[in-house]
Computed example of a mutant assay.
Amino acid sequence: MRIALFPGSFDPFTKGHEDIVLRSLALFDQVIIGIGNNVNKKRYFPLETMKFHIEACFSDYDSVKVIAYDDLTARVARELGARFLLRGLRNTTDFEYENGISQVNRFVYEEIETVFLITSPHLAPISSSIIRDLHRYGQNVDEFLPYDLMESAES
């Protein structure tokens, strides 16, 4: 079984992220979206809220799971039986950053392969940090997200 872990802070999970997951389903039997705890970032949206929204986005897809984790991504991938890390690239800056991380992941878990998918052109300008800034200052961000932020995780 070809299992891919799609790791990220997903703060928030965007239409760009959704696009990467949906396109990757043609390549993998199972895609696990892993919401990682990045010690260098303070979350804007609560992790449980984001997990709720991502699970709702993929509720019709048996081959997509969502987890939260607090460990090295490569170790989590090994524990899950994932031989692939899935990453989306918007530009060359993303590549430079992701390339270094992929090398370190191979150090931790030799059998892991990082698969890069280029973001669909119409979604390339979208980034979680830009969406956070817009939202923080009261701008409606619905067109960038595959879910309604007003829906509650407590529902």
Rank of each mutant, 00 (worst) to 15 (best):
M1P: 02
R2M: 03
R2C: 00
F10D: 09
F13W: 06
G16N: 03
H17N: 12
I20E: 03
I20Y: 05
V21D: 03
L22T: 08
A26L: 10
A26G: 11
L27Q: 06
Q30H: 03
Q30C: 07
V31A: 02
I32F: 08
G34C: 03
N37C: 05
N37T: 13
N40D: 14
K41L: 13
K42N: 15
K42P: 09
R43D: 13
Y44R: 09
Y44C: 10
Y44T: 07
F45S: 09
P46W: 03
E48C: 02
E48T: 01
K51I: 13
K51W: 05
F52V: 00
C57H: 04
D60C: 04
Y61N: 15
K65E: 00
A68M: 12
A68I: 10
A68E: 13
Y69Q: 04
Y69M: 11
D70R: 03
L72D: 04
T73E: 10
A74C: 13
A74G: 13
V76M: 06
R78P: 00
L80S: 06
R87G: 09
R87Q: 12
R87V: 07
R87D: 11
G88K: 11
G88D: 10
G88L: 10
G88E: 05
L89Y: 04
L89A: 04
R90F: 09
R90S: 11
N91F: 05
N91Q: 02
T92R: 11
T93D: 15
T93Q: 14
D94W: 10
D94V: 06
D94E: 13
F95M: 14
F95A: 08
E96V: 14
E96S: 14
Y97N: 14
E98C: 12
E98N: 14
I101K: 10
Q103L: 15
V104G: 10
N105R: 02
E110T: 10
E113K: 12
F116C: 09
F116N: 07
L117Q: 04
I118P: 01
I118W: 13
S120T: 13
P121W: 01
P121H: 00
S127E: 07
S128D: 05
I130P: 01
H135C: 03
R136N: 12
R136L: 14
N140K: 13
N140D: 15
V141G: 07
F144L: 11
L145I: 07
E151H: 12
S152Y: 06
S152T: 14
